[in-house]
Design a protein around this nucleic acid. Structure first.
Lengths: 168, 168
DNA sequence: AGGCAATTGTTATAATATAACATGCTTACT
DNA sequence: AGTAAGCATGTTATATTATAACAATTGCCT
């Protein structure tokens, strides 16, 4: 497990508390329940900007919820995804907090192979080009996943921890 | 398992044989071995334009290769992905033939929830907008996955087999 | 022949995810 | 109050996806 350099310009405690506050407000406004379990799972996901695996979350959740089982975590994750509070990172089978829950969140995820951090970007130009292409194809969209694997700025000069070879 | 309407303008036998011929030529040119197992797996994947699961492939492969085990299939899949002959569909944990092995294949996959067919599109406008965005972020790309879930033209007027609710 | 690399065989197990049914808790209606 | 309905959670079991570790085989090179 590689440790990231904390971005000095980034107050992560604030980052977490904002995410949680927003989530609480959204759920309140929508009349859905951000129960203790769901809140804890969300908080655990927001503990970093890395993508977190379901079973990692389970291990982290167990001390807080003695009865926690895989299903417990997956149910919470399902809820959080439905509410747009987290993203599922398809290419990693992992999960990451979503910063854009109140807007139309068109996710473009930059996934660093070195530090596992995931940066979410808006990229309206990409999205409009994409929408146009999809319309051309006569396709009706339900969801989009754009996932870019590579190395982030911070890790650019570091060696990869272990390569998985794939270059597309 | 929903059955698709065969596209009348599409000679799939030709489609398969072209894909296999191309694959053979490419492997020959690259000095890598498209062994019987690998060839069979590729052919099984090309049997449709649907995304196929590894264990489905295993079941299909067993009659042809008595000793086939999960590893057998995954090794063949790894090879085919490395050679750019198939795509891994991350959002389905499944695999689909790649039509663009000789070019730089930047995949944009349109995945129909109804018929499971996957359409691959080039979309250079999308890709250039995407590259620009990635450069802006100072990110070094290793691989890209753009996967759009929805309903294709052919299935537009049919009811969904079963919804999985997620809308992003 | 001997050695090396690549492929495949074999066994076992890890990692990811869901099914099915039971329990408890709130609300809302009568 | 009684009870039905909806929801979240508990509990047990199992399905699905993927890899590790080591042995055997094959083809090729010298």
């Amino acid at each position: 497990m590689t440790q990231t350099l904390p971005d000095p310009a980034h107050n992560h405690k604030l980052c977490i508390s904002q995410a949680l506050t927003t989530a609480e407000q959204l759920c309140g406004a929508r009349g859905v329940q951000l129960t203790p379990i769901r809140h804890q799972v969300l908080e655990l996901i927001w503990a970093s900007h890395k993508a977190v695996k379901a079973y990692e979350l389970l291990d982290l959740l167990k001390p807080l919820q003695h009865a926690a089982k895989p299903v417990t975590v997956y149910r919470a994750l399902d809820f959080l995804i439905e509410q747009g509070l987290i993203h599922r990172v398809e290419s990693l089978n992992a999960f990451v907090g979503c910063r854009c829950s109140d807007k139309q969140h068109e996710q473009l995820l930059l996934i660093c192979k070195h530090c596992q951090e995931v940066e979410e970007r808006y990229a309206p130009e990409v999205m409009s080009a994409l929408s146009e292409e999809i319309n051309k194809a006569g396709f009706t969209v339900h969801s989009k996943a754009i996932e870019i694997q590579g190395v982030c700025t911070a890790c650019r000069h570091l060696p990869l921890p272990q390569s998985n070879g794939q270059t597309t």
